[in-house]
Simulated assay, not measured.
Amino acid sequence: MKIIDWYILRRYLVTFLFTLLILIPIAIAIDVSEKIDNFLEHTNLGLEEILNDYYKNFIIYYANTFMPLALFIAVILFTSKLSNNTEIIAITNAKVSFTRFLYPYFIGASLVTIISLGMNHFVVPNSSKVRKGFEKKYLSNTREKNDLKFISDFSLQLTDSTYIYLKNYNTETNSGYNFTSETYDGLKLKSKLSADNLRYNTKDSTFSLTNWRKRLIYKDRDSIFKGNKIDTVFNFTPRDLIYKSALSQEMPSNELIKFINLSKKRGVKNLNAYLVELHKRTSLPIASYILTIIAVALAFRKRRGGTGVNLAIGIGIMFLYIFFMKIGEVLGSVAGVNSFIYVWIPNIMFGLLAIYLYWNARK
C-alpha cells in the first residue's frame, strides 16, 4: 500500500468510529428518556444492573445496527472534505484512476464487514439474550409477558410418525393440560397417549403425566392402560413450543440453523421470520461495500454547496435503503414467499445504483 492509501484508510476508519460514537450516545439519551419511569418503578433495581445487563448490551446491539449508517455518513464526510480541499484533484492528476482510488475504501469496508459479520452471527445474539431478559423482567407490560408465558392449542410433529397436541402450556411453571401424543403407521393410528396434566422436569429432562391413558391399536383388538402418574421422555423441550420471531434474535447463527432445520422436520410450516433474521445477519454487513461505492461516487467530485449537499443526498439514499430493508423484512416473513430474495432486494437495488454511479464517476 502507498502513503495515500494509508492516509485514506486512516481517515476512513477514524471518521467511521467518530460518527459511530456520536450516534450511540444519541440513541442512549433517547432510550433513557423513554424508560426512566420504568426504571424508577422498581425499587430493587440498581444502577449497576441497569448498566451491566441492559445498556452494555444495548450499546453492542445498536453499535452493530448503526455500522452501515455510520460508515455511509463517514465516507461522504471525509471524501467531500478531500474534494473540497482539492486533494482528489491532485490524486487524479497523478494518473490515479477512480477504481484505484477505491482500493483503500474497500480495505476499510472489508474490515467493517468482517467485524459486523462476527458480531451479527455470534456476539449480538448472546448479548440480546441478556438484554431481552432484562426487558422482560423490568420493562415489558403484562400483555407482552403473557404472550411468552402462555401457549394454547399447540401441535407439533416430533418424527415422521409421531405428533403431539397441547391445549395450554405455561412456560414459567413448565406445566400444561390436555396433552395428547399420537403415533401413526402411514395413515393408520397405532397408539395414543393422553393426559389431563403434563409437567416438565428440568433436572432430568423428563415429563410427568397425571391421569394418563394409553391406547394401543392392533388389527383385531385394542389395549387400554391408565394410571395416576407416569414419568416419560419425549423428543422436545418447552423451548420448542415457543415460536416467536423475537426469539430468533437471541440465537447464535449455528443454533438458529439447527432450530430451523429441526422445526422443518417437525412440520412447522411458517419459519420465514426466523429465515429473515438469519439472512439479514449476512445481507446488512455486505451492504458496507455497496454503500461505500455510492458514498465515494457521490462525494468524489466537488459540488456547489460542498459537503452539505453531498450529506443531504447521502442521508436521503440511506433512509431509502432502510425503508426498503424494512419492507423486505416484513414481506419476507409472510408464509409461502422466498425470504432470501426479499431480504436481499435492497442490496440488489442499491447494488445496481452503485454500479451506475461507479461507471458515471469513472468518466
Score class of each variant (00 low, 15 high):
I3A: 09
Y7T: 10
R11F: 04
R11Q: 14
Y12G: 11
L13P: 07
L21V: 01
I22P: 14
L23C: 13
P25M: 15
I26W: 00
I28K: 15
V32K: 14
V32Y: 15
S33K: 10
S33L: 15
I36K: 13
L40K: 05
L45N: 14
G46V: 04
E48M: 02
E48F: 00
E48T: 01
I50C: 13
I50K: 11
L51R: 03
A63E: 07
N64F: 01
M67F: 00
L69A: 08
I73N: 05
I73W: 05
I73L: 13
I76A: 04
L77Y: 06
F78V: 12
S83T: 03
V96Q: 05
L102A: 10
L111H: 11
I114P: 05
G118C: 10
N120R: 09
S127P: 11
S127H: 12
V130H: 13
Y138I: 11
L139R: 01
S152H: 13
L158I: 08
D160M: 09
Y169C: 06
E172K: 09
E172Q: 12
T173A: 07
T173G: 10
S181D: 14
Y184L: 03
L187K: 04
K190G: 02
A195Q: 09
A195W: 03
R199Q: 15
N201Y: 11
S205Y: 08
W212H: 06
R215G: 12
L216C: 00
F225P: 09
N228C: 07
D231Y: 05
Y243S: 13
S245D: 06
S248E: 01
P252E: 09
E255R: 09
L256E: 07
F259K: 13
L271E: 02
N272F: 00
Y274R: 06
H279E: 09
T282S: 15
P285F: 10
I290G: 01
L291V: 05
G306L: 03
V309D: 10
N310L: 12
I317V: 07
M318G: 12
Y321M: 14
I322F: 00
A335S: 07
N338S: 15
F340S: 12
I341C: 06
V343L: 11
P346T: 03
N347D: 15
M349T: 10
M349H: 07
L352M: 12
Y356R: 15
L357V: 05
Y358G: 10
W359G: 00
W359R: 07
A361M: 11
